[in-house]
Amino acid sequence: MWAQVINAILGIWLMAAPGVFGFDKPIDDNDHIIGPLIATFAVVAFWECTRVVRTYNIPLGAWLLLAPWVLGYENTLATVNDMGVGLLVIAFSLVKGKIENRYGGGWSAAWRDNTLHQREAQKQ
């Protein structure tokens, strides 16, 4: 969970960075869009049952690595900031963390066959 807490903070930082450093368009728009999304996915992934949502941040982190070049940032600080945050977000998205409880086989068990909850139900 600690990894997702860090990603939530990184997302909030991205929301604040344009104001802190005075970034102009399109940098501020990009940070203001991607920041809340990263923070949201990270917070949802705090809980074990929805930990899988952490992986949604991998494409967002990858976009932050590309954005300075695709959008043509003319600001070194913004480029370093976006790419640095992107790299960290990808790294922490890959950390699964502890899963202490069982969830009947997880989300795919709602449509797959022969999953944990079905086997356990048959035993009862």
């Binding site: 923070a39 049952c49 929805t50 969830y103 997880g106 709602a110 909850h117």
Partner: peptide, 21 residues
Amino acid sequence: SVVMIGPAMDEMLASLQYMKR
């Protein structure tokens, strides 16, 4: 509203698995 999402989903998962059975 974002903090509510994670903890609400486990119950929905239990119901979806029940509906599968």
